[in-house]
Simulated assay, not measured.
Amino acid sequence: MTAKRGEAVDHLRRLASQLEAHSFQVHLRSSHGPDPRLHVVNPMAPTMTEDVLATHDEDGEWWFWLSWAGRIGQAEDVATAAERVASVLHVIRR
C-alpha cells in the first residue's frame, strides 16, 4: 500500500468511527479499485447508501468526497463531514 493510499484509509477509518457512533453501517473498501472508499448505509432505509472517498489536493490538504464528486469537507474536520454524509442519507418520515 502506498503512503498516500494508507493516509486515505486512515482518514476514512476516522470518518467510519464517527458515522458508526451515529448508527450508520460502514464498510471500508480498500482493496477494490484504485481508490479506497467508505461504503455508508442508513440502517433505517438500507437502500440509502453512499460511497465516500478521501483525496488530497495539489496543496496536500485532504478532503472527503461523495462518490458523485461532491466535496463534503476537510479530512481534519471529521464531525462536519459525518454530518454532511448523514444529511445525504437522511430519510424524511411522513
Score class of each variant (00 low, 15 high):
residue 94 R to Y: 07
residue 50 E to I: 08
residue 3 A to V: 12
residue 48 M to C: 05
residue 21 A to S: 15
residue 11 H to N: 12
residue 65 W to D: 05
residue 76 E to N: 08
residue 93 R to N: 02
residue 70 G to N: 09
residue 55 T to N: 08
residue 78 V to L: 10
residue 12 L to R: 05
residue 44 M to H: 11
residue 85 V to Y: 00
residue 18 Q to A: 15
residue 93 R to E: 07
residue 35 D to A: 13
residue 79 A to Q: 14
residue 74 Q to H: 12
residue 93 R to V: 04
residue 4 K to R: 15
residue 91 V to G: 02
residue 35 D to Y: 14
residue 55 T to A: 10
residue 28 L to D: 05
residue 4 K to M: 13
residue 76 E to C: 04
residue 65 W to M: 06
residue 26 V to G: 06
residue 90 H to S: 14
residue 64 F to D: 03
residue 10 D to C: 01
residue 22 H to S: 15
residue 5 R to L: 09
residue 64 F to H: 03
residue 18 Q to L: 06
residue 73 G to E: 10
residue 13 R to M: 05
residue 86 A to G: 14
residue 77 D to V: 12
residue 34 P to R: 13
residue 30 S to W: 12
residue 69 A to N: 15
residue 48 M to L: 11
residue 30 S to N: 15
residue 80 T to R: 15
residue 3 A to C: 01
residue 11 H to C: 09
residue 22 H to I: 09
residue 58 E to V: 12
residue 69 A to E: 14
residue 6 G to P: 00
residue 55 T to I: 02
residue 83 E to A: 14
residue 46 P to A: 07
residue 89 L to R: 03
residue 5 R to W: 03
residue 66 L to T: 11
residue 62 W to R: 04
residue 39 H to T: 02
residue 25 Q to G: 07
residue 55 T to W: 07
residue 53 L to H: 11
residue 69 A to D: 14
residue 27 H to N: 15
residue 9 V to R: 08
residue 59 D to V: 08
residue 64 F to L: 06
residue 56 H to E: 14
residue 40 V to N: 10
residue 53 L to P: 00
residue 82 A to F: 00
residue 76 E to L: 06
residue 87 S to P: 00
residue 46 P to M: 08
residue 47 T to G: 08
residue 45 A to N: 08
residue 72 I to L: 06
residue 85 V to M: 02
residue 90 H to V: 11
residue 86 A to L: 10
residue 68 W to N: 13
residue 13 R to L: 11
residue 18 Q to F: 03
residue 91 V to Q: 08
residue 4 K to Y: 10
residue 5 R to G: 02
residue 57 D to L: 05
residue 35 D to F: 14
residue 33 G to L: 10
residue 84 R to A: 08
residue 83 E to V: 09
residue 28 L to F: 07
residue 53 L to M: 03
residue 35 D to M: 10
residue 84 R to N: 12
residue 23 S to G: 06
residue 27 H to Q: 15
residue 33 G to P: 04
residue 83 E to C: 12
residue 10 D to V: 02
residue 66 L to S: 11
residue 74 Q to E: 12
residue 38 L to T: 03
residue 53 L to R: 05
residue 7 E to T: 13
residue 17 S to F: 00
